[in-house]
Design a binder for these strands. Sequence first.
DNA 1: GAGCACTGC
Length: 733
Amino acid sequence: MSWVARGSHQSNANANGNANCNGNGNGNGKFSNANRNGKTNSSPWRQKIAQQRKSLPIASVEKRLIEEVRKNDILIIVGETGSGKTTQIPQFLFNAGFCNNGKVVGITQPRRVAAVTVAKRVADECGVELGQKVGYSVRFDDSTSNSTRIKYMTDGLLLREALLDPYLSKYSVIIVDEAHERTVHTDVLMGLLKNVQLARSESINDGQNLNNGNKNANGFMLLDKDNGQNSSFDRKERREKSSPLKLIIMSASLDARTFSEYFGGAKAVHIQGRQFPVDIFYTRYPETDYVDAALITIFQVHLEETHGDILVFLTGQEEIESVERLIKERLTKLPQGSQNLQVVPIYAALPPEQQMRAFAPAPSGFRKVILATNIAETSITIPGIKYVIDPGLVKARSYDPGKGMESLIVVPTSKSQALQRSGRAGREGPGKCFRLYPENEFEKLEDSTMPEIKRCNLSNVILQLKALGVDDILGFDFIEKPSRTAIIKSLEQLFLLGALTDECQLSDPVGRQMARLPLDPDYAKALILASQFNCLEEMLITVAMLSVESIFYTPRDKYEEARTATKCFASPEGDHITLINVYRAATDFLEKRTVEMNKAKSEKVLRKWCNENFINSRSLRHARDIHRQIQGHVQQMGLKLASCGDDMLQFRRCLVASFFLNAAMKQADGTYRAYASGQVVQIHPSSVLFRKKPDCIIFNELIQTNNKYVRNLTRVDSLWLTELAPQFYAMQN
DNA sequence: GAGCACTGC
């Protein structure tokens, strides 16, 4: 293939001259906390860590940064990859006294692994035990204690904390890291933090009259709503609420302006990163077959370029598997001396042990080519990459609120995604990135990926906001507002589920209970109903299993084997009961064997059982975690934890009462028509009812891929619809 | 008769 070279993209924020924080620092790296433990401090390892810290680009600007934080209540920090902002800034703040009087510096991350690994790293740097001064808190895993002052957490977890403490009163500073990723949680959190900050500062300036502090700049009622029951704050509460909250938003350079504008022209400072130059190459002409173009490029790099591993971005598991086959085929046609190429696939659904292969170095004398989905764009960093091949496509999820349908389709990447991908070649030294499209195509790409909040079902978000006391959802200060249709549709859904009253207020107790459960609203409602139908045990298992990704793992090469293995769990009534069967089989298996086993051993035994039964052990473990957590919640709420025993009729009726919005009827041609949206759909091939085609079904997922499919379904009697959901189906007649 | 980017509470 012939290439057009386009200089190097050195994603170094400093290049634009906006270097507020560069070159002015004292450079002496005042790491006073490192001295706390004299013993470890003198160890070579600790000296090495101290050296590494001092050499970070950020170390020289500690003083300047702290000054900026003191001067500005909101600060945008643009820190490029490798600047050390995530690990260092919280330590600077601690040293500057922001954790005095028991206050906490909170740092949010979009991903669990990041929160956990960074916290461990910082605890090491500080020479403290994890969970003391430095800790993390993520779902199912909390290492923090009363003495934790630097707390790393997921953004979703901080949102949950806000439900219990609307003023987030223990935090003096909250840092929202990776804000440019624009996950739903990050976006909602920023809107919320804006309000919290205002409420906390207003209550200082206006301490005489707390009621005036209830409105934010836009005039919406604010968070005091939740405290309406005990409207007179006691002294302590008032003091905590009254201390100001500092906000720091950390982002990549392309998006800094958006955040600055959103926060009323907040100051943005840039911190130099440490990224090596990456030469970008474009194709001369558009490629008609990007898979073939990728193959050709892989071999071009392998045969013509100096040593260094290759990372190829592909759209999905199937594509990765086929490219893997094709590479191996073509390799056999190369001369013996050129066959030293190792192919390694990596995608989220791959079992962890196989994922680890991507991180292991290639055998000596071999070059490694990694075929990855988007997982390698942000979630994981693979060492040794020198060449990136980017076809410029990504499989993206979007949501159509009108049809109530999700879709999963291949679309072009954004410019910032393309930059992120090419940056993967410059982590350890200069690299090259081959974009499989012409340069003028790059110019046509969107600057940033559309934020998730504009392409997902909002019911969950809205229920949370309602529970946080935000009444006017349409008027909420979203950084980017979802469409009016999307908001109205979700309000409608919440109303039909009984979470909202006629006046669009959160209902009590149903709405409040639903908001407390960390589940999709319809699953939360199902649990409340199940306690009345005496099948809460079964529903608890069901929603836990529905909340995780594909329970069944069917590798292409063992297809038949997998099908026979999973057959023994199948229920003629449908997927829900099948999922219950799998869960119970796993639990029974464990209970029989683990009387004398410790936790680690029983995990291992369960993994083996999963492999034998073609069940994804990661998904099952996740479901068991969710089950445990939700069980705790429903018990606290006082819901009746009963089982319907063998009376699955009762359970299926409860499914109808819960998911009545997702009913579909078989049509003459064998396709189905979904009642609520009128969509014509098919049963997904993964369903146990794929061939059975019952007359009337209740489903949980409506998704468009190559076709429109419903997934996770159960056979029901159509008469139950009017009987159990008259509020919806009686109106229709 | 045929399919599952990635996070998160």
